[in-house]
């Protein structure tokens, strides 16, 4: 029973829905209502902070701060689960690597510090980028003078990805229906693995052709609306980013975060723990 339930939870359909929910940030949350430029600024603040110290107490405090931000941003279970699993594997790997190659505990602590820094970075990017819907993110990138192609790529990627994943799943199911499954599983299920890998690779052939068609439609629609010419004339950019408003709420969140980061450093200065 429990196996069956787990199978349902981890189905492709669930992953797809979860990705759509993530991409469109329908969960709401603190950062979803903020100005996207302020969110990017917030992310930069959180991303730079852990690299300026070696104090493990400060890093732990920053990690807690990142976790609070993730909770406030209402990050979904799929993305959060992938992050936690990744962090867990990283820790296991560190312990294994250290014991296998004769290092002692200091090696682990040294590597743990880097892992903690990367963890803070990941938490910040989870909270920030999961909260931004594609339009806002691409407007913010445009406002920060990124190339228009990048801003378009972000917006297009977020919109298209759930569709592409769905299309891919459809094609894979079609291939599976048309073929007999492998006769036996083989040692460690290698036959099933090879079967699955072959189907995945074969599925790319129709996907290449379908995506080429839809990309041509997209680009022609863009050009019909003057995408390239809008990038030449600065007024096009001004119209697009005209809707962005930096309000008191954004300033407040940034100020509180700066204060919290300063507090983390204060805590670290009061009870410092260094490796080695």
């Amino acid at each position: 029973m429990s196996l069956r339930t787990q199978h349902d939870v981890l189905s492709v359909e669930w992953i797809k829905l979860e990705l759509i929910r993530t991409a469109y940030s329908t969960r709401g949350g603190l950062f979803a209502a903020m100005d996207p430029r302020a969110v990017i600024g917030w992310y930069l603040l959180m991303a730079v902070a852990p690299w300026l110290t070696h104090n493990l107490t400060t890093l732990a405090a920053l990690f807690v701060l990142g976790a609070v931000a993730v909770a406030l941003a209402r990050v979904g279970p799929l993305v959060l689960g992938l992050f936690v699993i990744g962090l867990g594997f990283e820790l296991i790997y560190l312990a294994l690597a250290a014991t296998l190659f004769g290092g002692d505990l200091t090696t682990v602590v040294a590597l743990l510090e880097v892992t903690a820094k990367l963890g803070v970075l990941s938490l910040a990017s989870l909270a920030a980028f999961v909260s931004l819907d594609p339009e806002k993110l691409s407007d913010a990138l445009l406002a920060l003078r990124f190339p228009p192609a990048v801003a378009f790529a972000v917006s297009y990627g977020y919109r298209m990805m759930p569709i592409l994943v769905e299309e891919f799943a459809t094609v894979v199911e079609g291939y599976r229906l048309r073929q007999a499954p492998p006769a036996g599983r083989g040692l460690l299920g290698w036959r099933a693995l090879v079967h699955w890998v072959l189907i995945t690779i074969r599925a790319f052939y129709p996907i290449f052709l379908n995506t080429a068609k839809s990309v041509r439609t997209t680009v022609e629609a863009l050009e019909a609306r003057g995408f390239t010419f809008a990038t030449i004339d600065p007024r096009g950019r001004a119209i697009r980013i005209g809707s962005l408003r930096f309000g008191p709420r954004d300033a407040a969140v940034l100020a509180v975060t700066a204060l919290a980061v300063a507090c983390c450093y204060l805590v670290g200065a009061t009870w410092p723990v260094y490796r080695g």
Partner: peptide
């Protein structure tokens, strides 16, 4: 330019899709 944009977007979408599969 539109053809370059097509190649760019196609490459981005397909490689992104491949990476999503690997992520799962």
């Amino acid at each position: 330019t539109p053809q370059n944009l097509m190649v760019f977007v196609l490459s981005m979408a397909l490689f992104g899709l491949a990476n999503i599969l690997l992520e799962i």
